[in-house]
């Protein structure tokens, strides 16, 4: 296997150039997918035979919850890469992904509460799925706070990496909480091994929204990482040249 790409990732300059080329594609894909998914899910998907139209909240709830969990796994992978290979970009990715993950967890919890009111008759229950998602939000807060509390960049990177890796134990707990404990929450919508229980006109827009949210995440993460790379590498000559060029387009 060719590992050149992995070693190149160690170079912030290479990352900055390649991400600048990818960013517009992710942004366009996110806008298109979320736009199509939104209209399809809100206006064209049939109402649920039990829940009526409140089920349409699924089209933001599930993508946000998927992304919240995937993002945390990404934090842990970035933390591991940073600890093992001392890759500087891994810490940039970890620090910049954490706030997006926290926002996504917030969306999942909030839309879940709004959906719960007409469906279960309550905004919140201390149930396994809901509680473990709340813990995920606190883990994100922990990573963000830790990253800002330690002024030495290398120490902060190490501490955040360790917290991310330890905290990833919460992800399987979230995933299996609906199987392990009695829960109000319905089981997974998508399973890799089975066909979805809902008809295609319901799950196709959901799949489109999930893909749209992933593209959105990629675009926002790259935007954040590119700025952070510029700040951290401010002393290198290529950043000075790039900032000069960007400043000129600004004025």
């Amino acid at each position: 296997m060719n590992w050149t790409w992995f070693h190149k990732l160690g170079s912030p300059k290479w990352f900055y150039e390649i991400s600048g080329r990818w960013l517009p594609w992710f942004a366009v894909a996110a806008v298109l997918l979320i736009g199509v998914g939104l209209v399809w899910g809100l206006a064209f998907a049939p109402p649920d035979y039990q829940q009526g139209n409140s089920f349409r909240i699924i089209y933001i709830h599930v993508p946000a919850a998927f992304l919240a969990q995937s993002c945390y796994v990404m934090l842990a992978v970035a933390g591991l890469v940073g600890l093992v290979w001392k890759m500087k970009l891994a810490d940039v990715a970890l620090q910049q992904a954490a706030p997006i993950g926290a926002w996504m967890t917030f969306i999942a919890l909030l839309t879940g509460a709004i959906w719960g009111k007409p469906t279960w008759g309550t905004w919140w229950v201390w149930d396994a799925r809901l509680t473990s998602m709340l813990i995920l939000l606190f883990l994100y807060f922990g990573v963000i706070a830790l990253g800002q509390a330690i002024s030495n960049r290398d120490s902060a990177a190490k501490a955040c990496a360790v917290l991310s890796i330890v905290g990833v134990v919460n992800i399987p707990i979230i995933k299996y909480s609906v199987d392990w404990w009695n829960s109000l929450h319905q089981p997974a919508t998508f399973k890799i091994t089975e066909k979805p229980a809902m008809p295609a006109e319901m799950w196709v827009p959901l799949l489109i929204m999930v893909l749209g949210f992933y593209c959105f995440f990629a675009a926002v993460l790259l935007m954040r990482m590119r700025l952070e790379v510029l700040k951290r590498e401010a002393r290198s000559s290529w950043v000075k040249a790039e900032v000069r060029a960007q400043v000129e387009t600004l004025s």
Binding site: L38, L42, G52, N53, I57, I60, T111, V220
Partner: peptide, 28 residues
């Protein structure tokens, strides 16, 4: 109206879209 679920559906979508916009606006 979304059946009787209008306030739930629209508040969930409204707040979520606002959060997405914030996430784009902050780095820009």
């Amino acid at each position: 109206a979304m059946g009787t679920h209008g306030p739930y559906v629209w508040s969930a979508y409204g707040i979520s879209l606002a959060v997405l916009v914030i996430n784009v606006a902050l780095p820009v």
